[in-house]
């Protein structure tokens, strides 16, 4: 028996804070059955698992929750929620806790990915470079693969039916990986377009815990798609 918690006066500040932000949190419903921990690949990391996470909240052990780096091992994958008899979404609670961590104490690269996203995309490649890389690669295909001489990679085509997002990783480090998808879309013959701004298919602001960042990046992209008049947003992952 390692610890002693004095609960002579129970204080559950953190739990209440989360419950305020997440009305469907249902932390108190937990039956401590362990089903979540049974199914979670992150169980045991940092001596934590989804059930303990809930239990510490219930017992008001806020410091443990605020300090554990397990919140960066929980991938918010919701496998626990999928089968939990009480339907508790531990990932949703972890998200809130991530957001409570002061920005300066967060993992630097994760926060940076989101900050870059807010400026344009998650790798920070300038939009002009993206446009240039797409054109450059397309040109190369036209030259080297005669059977694809009519391949297209439309950019900012107003009125196209489909909008295609693009994970920033490819234009940044492996641009040739963009080509197969262009070829498929070309073979099918749909009317699609990229956008030269807010084109990133990933969104790391989902993982920092700041809803306003997530909202901002999602909204800017949505406005862009609506401005282009596309009726279908194709998510590439």
């Amino acid at each position: 028996m390692s610890e002693n918690y004095n609960l002579s006066k129970l204080r559950t500040r953190l739990k209440k804070q989360i419950e305020q932000a997440v009305p469907e949190a249902r932390i108190d419903y937990c039956l401590t059955c362990g089903l979540c921990a049974s199914g979670c690949p992150a169980s045991g990391i940092e001596d934590m698992d989804p059930r303990k996470f809930l239990r510490y909240l219930v017992l008001g052990q806020d410091d443990i929750i605020l300090q554990t780096n397990w919140i960066y091992s929980c991938s918010l994958c919701q496998r626990c929620k999928y089968a939990c008899p009480m339907g508790i979404d531990v990932g949703r609670l972890v998200y809130e806790v991530k957001g409570m961590r002061p920005v300066e104490d967060r993992p630097k690269n994760l926060q940076k990915s989101c900050d870059l996203q807010k400026a344009g995309n998650s790798t920070g490649i300038p939009n002009d470079d993206f446009v240039w890389v797409v054109g450059d690669i397309l040109e190369e295909i036209h030259e080297t693969e005669p059977e694809w001489s009519d391949l297209k990679a439309p950019m900012d085509k107003v009125g196209a039916k489909f909008y295609l997002n693009q994970n920033a990783k490819e234009p940044t480090v492996e641009p040739e990986e963009m080509v197969p998808l262009w070829k498929i879309l070309h073979a099918v013959g749909i009317d699609w377009t990229y956008s030269s701004k807010w084109w990133d298919g990933a969104n790391y602001c989902l993982f920092t815990g700041d809803p306003e960042d997530w909202e901002l990046t999602t909204r800017l992209q949505a406005e862009t798609v609506d401005d282009l008049g596309c009726t279908t947003y194709i998510n590439t992952e």
Binding site: C74, K98, K112
Partner: peptide, 8 residues
């Protein structure tokens, strides 16, 4: 996922 790749 969940930022784990970026978080260290």
């Amino acid at each position: 996922g969940g930022g784990a790749l970026q978080a260290g």
